[in-house]
Design a protein around this nucleic acid. Sequence first.
DNA 1: ACCGGCAAAGTGGTCTGATAAATATGCGGG
DNA 2: CCCGCATATTTATCAGACCACTTTGCCGGT
Lengths: 233, 233
Amino acid sequence: MDETAPQKGTVTQRAIEQIKAMIAEGRLEPGQRLPTERDLAARLGISRSSMREAIRALTVLGVLEARHGSGIYVTQLEAGDLLETFGVVADLSRGPRLVELLEVRRILESTATALAAARITPDRLAEVEKHLTAMNATDDPEEILAHDLAFHREIAAAAGNDTMAAILEGLSSRTFRARVWRGYQEEGAFTRTRREHAAIHRALAARDPEAARAAAAAHVGEVEEWLRDRLAR
Amino acid sequence: MDETAPQKGTVTQRAIEQIKAMIAEGRLEPGQRLPTERDLAARLGISRSSMREAIRALTVLGVLEARHGSGIYVTQLEAGDLLETFGVVADLSRGPRLVELLEVRRILESTATALAAARITPDRLAEVEKHLTAMNATDDPEEILAHDLAFHREIAAAAGNDTMAAILEGLSSRTFRARVWRGYQEEGAFTRTRREHAAIHRALAARDPEAARAAAAAHVGEVEEWLRDRLAR
DNA sequence: ACCGGCAAAGTGGTCTGATAAATATGCGGG
DNA sequence: CCCGCATATTTATCAGACCACTTTGCCGGT
């Protein structure tokens, strides 16, 4: 006769699932505001502390957004929101998994670049070119890295698949790039990187998907191989 | 003269970053036990409630694991641990983003299947075959789905890239498959699916990466196209 | 000396209540 | 009609207590 659920897991875990379910079932729309912490806690029959833990969890997952003094809202649930956590994988990975991540990036980036070659608009291509020249015009590693990131980000965006772009963004997170690229470029890979970027841009300008795919794969593959070698030692 | 940090963001957010940093810097090893909640809170100068929120957040991210009565531990930080949250993306996506997710899956799955064709061991191939026959031997949709998932999971594992396998696992999460596959198979796609699975298995048995890639791409692409059509209406 | 069980200490899980800080609201004056 | 300020609402944080589960080690029996 026990009316109260099966009691599986912690109350916080259950609260997380219930809120997720509300969103999945459409009872909570993107951007919509939730009841207050106190209301929600009372409604699910748990304490405010536990409810806050659930909300915090969903916040770091990019599902909810808490605004101090205002309320709790469902995010737009766009790819960028939900895949932000992908960055922690890159940040906390080391050794062989870094190679695996680069392999995934190579696969996705080469496809994205190929798609971009077929779909990119002239103004976006100009934007890509801007970052390319800016990247080649400075010696500051920080600035180079920033334009490098932007260069690939524009291309990923041009591919027209936001989800893919968001994943690639995570795989190129600032700290990840900094950790791997640093060593790579210290070995005088600047000129090679420059040439590879030029090749990618050329393929995009020529609207040649296959060339773009090959150039992007080679670009990431170079780093991948370098890292593989370095780990072998 | 303010000795206390820049105060950016909430204290909980800062605690999350600090613990993440400890792990990234190697001061916390995989599997290692952390100080108690009370100690950690005191050490960072915050309340236990806030510390608990930070721990809960890192728990859902698959970075930490709390064991009631025992303590808090760093997970093994393997791909599977950290990418578990990828499933929520699939669970909370709808409309056009489902197509995008399928596109990502098609790209990764086709590559994974190609790699598997080159690397799969005989006993793992036998395992794949087992799920194939079991899938064809029953009419229960639930059982078919389970073997379908296992079929692709074995192949992804054989590709030798745990990270890729973990991502694919998220893209094939039970609820995701259930939502999309349901509609797809209701339209009598069983026989077609069966043929496609057979083609994939044949390519694996023949150790033919290109055939495997094509078969896998076609397999996912079929569903992708169906979903695209369905959304267009 | 070994072993089984039991008690106590340690630790995460939950609840309650209070205060601070940021935001939203509504009213009154210009 | 609009601006500004007092007030209410809401999240952020803290403090302290108790419960549930796990681990540890002692103690008695064999």
